[in-house]
Every structure is written in structure tokens, then in C-alpha cells.
């Protein structure tokens, strides 16, 4: 064994030694398993698409694109269309984004721009994170028994005095778009706030110092320097928040009224793709299941596009700042 410099005569007594053949075999096996698990994520996504798509295929062949433009969901006639649901999904999410976006970005500014002591800011961050930890169904329950009774007097007053205005053209009879969008806004606020906070944190401190050094007020620094610098990160936050709103299910199924109509009124009941699935799936059979699978594919496509867009903006932002360092 003189040709192998590691294998000296007293190997048997030595404490150290090269990895044995079984060490190498175990290493290769372990690396293969880890590789398989990484591959599993790719396989899982493909399998999800294949399974849902496969179930939806008969409905896709039968209804084709008219499924997207159809406005009725009639089980007895076998007539299925999801335009009202697509409208409701986008409308509720946009309203939620408008509210949640404004408040989310305001809170991100509040937490990062020196309004409160760092320790207090940490406490407030925890509060916002706790908002995200409350289950959707609990928000639904809260919406039914706290928010809707709270909104009703205001909604009725708005409808009576400003009823000619399209947004207030119906009265709030229990569930409707306004409570649903409000709860949705509360639910996406933590997402928007957290990603925006990251965007502000990534700005080098000297940028802010330079702005203050020029004699700006705090808000001139925020509006003219910090916000533009963080804008792409905030955009990513808004897009990802929008993506979350699109797919939110239980709170909406409990609050939006599950009514198949297209209306701009804030107080009219409506429906979304996700709550259509939640409320019709458990009792569906036959072709309705396939139609629901088709609706699931539509929802998957919409959220996929929005999320990929958000992730790409986020990645571009990170690259931009890492390049500047």
C-alpha cells in the first residue's frame, strides 16, 4: 500500500483517517435524496397543474372561452359562466388594494422613518404581524357580527342621500362588497407593510442623511427622496398584496353574499372565484365539479400572472440595490 500516501501501516490505531467507502456511499445517497426533494417542488407544481387541469378538461372542451364571458351559474340548466366571479374577484381585490395599499405604505413609513422610538416600532411591527396571524375564518366571523352592523347605518345614509351615485346605488342588506373589501384590506395590510418596510430598510442611510443635510423637512425627504428610491420595492409589495387578495377565500365567502351579479355598487352582494369554489364545491357533482375545476384553473392563471409579476419586480429591485452597494 505504499502507493497510497494516506494509508500508512498504523491506520488501525490512528484516530484520524480518510472517509471510508461507506462514508462516500452515504454521502452520495444523501445528496441524491436532497436533490430529489428539490426536484419534488418542480414535480409538485407540475402535478397540481396536471391534476386540476385534467379534471377541468371536460368542462374546458364543453364550454370553451364562453365560460369566461358567461354570466350565469345555473346547475339545473347546466349553464356555467364566471364573468361575475372574475369581476367580483378583481373589484374586491382592487378596492382592498387601494385601502390596504395606502395604509400599508403609510405604516411602512411610520415604522422606518423615525416617527417613533425603535423599540416602540418593534412593538408596532409585532402588532401588524399579529394581524396576519389571525385566521381568515375568524375575520369572517368578525365581519359578520362586528363590521356589517357597524357599516350599515353609514351605508344606508350614503344610499339614501347619494343613491344616484353608482358606488352607492344599492343598500347594504347584510353581506356585500364593502365589508368584504374592508376585511380583505385588513388582511393584505401586513403583506404590503412588511415588504414596503424591507424596501425602505434597503435604502442606504446616507441617502437620508444627504436629504436632511440639504435642509429638507422630514416629509420632503420622504416624498422626494425615500419614496422614489423605494418605489420599485413598494410596487412589488402592492402587486404581491393584490395577489394575496385575489386568492383569499373564507372571509369573502362569509362576507360577500355569494350573489351572481356584476355591480359597481359598494353595498351590493357579489361573488369571487375563490368563494364560488368554497360555497359550491362541497355539494357539487358531475359536470358542476368539472366547471368548478375550470374556475379553479382561471383563478390559478390570474394569481400566477400577478404573483410572478410581483416576484419579478421584487427580484429586480434587490438586484438594483445589491449592484449599487
Amino acid at each position: 500500500m505504499a502507493s497510497d500516501p494516506f494509508q500508512s501501516a498504523d491506520t488501525a490505531n490512528a484516530v484520524s483517517g480518510p472517509p471510508s467507502a461507506s462514508d462516500y456511499a452515504g454521502d452520495a445517497l444523501f445528496r441524491f435524496i436532497a436533490y430529489a426533494c428539490a426536484l419534488l417542488i418542480v414535480v409538485l407544481v407540475a402535478y397540481i397543474l396536471w391534476k386540476i387541469g385534467g379534471q377541468a378538461l371536460p368542462a374546458m372542451q364543453e364550454f370553451g372561452p364562453s365560460f369566461i364571458t358567461g354570466t350565469t351559474w345555473d346547475v339545473s340548466k347546466g349553464d356555467y359562466g364566471v364573468l361575475p366571479e372574475i369581476w367580483g374577484t378583481l373589484y374586491s381585490s382592487l378596492l382592498a388594494l387601494l385601502l390596504g395599499g395606502i395604509f400599508g405604505v403609510a405604516i411602512a413609513i411610520f415604522l422606518t422613518q423615525g416617527f417613533i422610538h425603535a423599540r416602540l416600532a418593534a412593538v408596532f411591527r409585532t402588532i401588524v404581524e399579529l394581524l396576519a396571524a389571525i385566521p381568515s375564518v375568524v375575520y369572517g366571523l368578525w365581519g359578520i357580527y362586528v363590521l356589517i352592523p357597524l357599516l350599515r347605518p353609514t351605508a344606508d345614509w350614503l344610499h339614501e342621500t347619494l343613491g344616484w351615485f353608482p358606488l352607492f346605488s344599492s343598500s347594504l342588506n347584510g353581506p356585500g362588497m364593502a365589508p368584504a373589501a374592508l376585511v380583505l384590506a385588513i388582511m393584505i395590510l401586513p403583506t404590503v407593510a412588511a415588504i414596503s418596510v424591507d424596501a425602505f430598510r434597503r435604502i442606504p442611510y446616507k441617502v437620508k442623511e444627504a436629504a436632511y443635510g440639504m435642509g429638507t423637512t422630514r416629509w420632503e425627504a420622504i416624498l422626494k427622496v425615500m419614496l422614489p428610491t423605494a418605489s420599485s420595492g413598494i410596487l412589488a409589495a402592492l402587486v404581491l398584496g393584490f395577489g394575496r387578495a385575489l386568492g383569499e377565500t373564507m372571509a369573502l365567502a362569509m362576507l360577500i353574499g355569494n350573489s351572481n351579479q356584476i355591480s359597481v355598487s359598494l353595498f351590493a352582494p357579489a361573488n369571487t372565484l375563490a368563494s364560488l369554489l368554497a360555497s359550491n364545491f362541497p355539494e357539487a357533482s358531475g359536470i358542476e365539479v368539472e366547471a368548478l375545476m375550470y374556475a379553479a384553473m382561471v383563478l390559478l392563471a390570474i394569481t400566477f400572472v400577478v404573483n410572478v409579476l410581483g416576484l419579478m419586480i421584487q427580484q429586480m429591485t434587490m438586484r438594483k440595490f445589491e449592484g449599487k452597494k
Partner: peptide
Amino acid sequence: IASLSRFLAKVLTGMPSILAGVFAYAA
């Protein structure tokens, strides 16, 4: 394969939770 599965994992975090239910129903 790492960057693909990392990307898909991020996409999966944004997937509506009800679609996980639809998938488990079908599968």
C-alpha cells in the same frame, strides 16, 4: 434546478389556499 424550484416555491407561497384544497380533492 435549484433556481427553478426556488422560484416555484415562491410562486407556491402565493397560490390561493383553496387551490391546494382543489388539488387534494382531485389527487
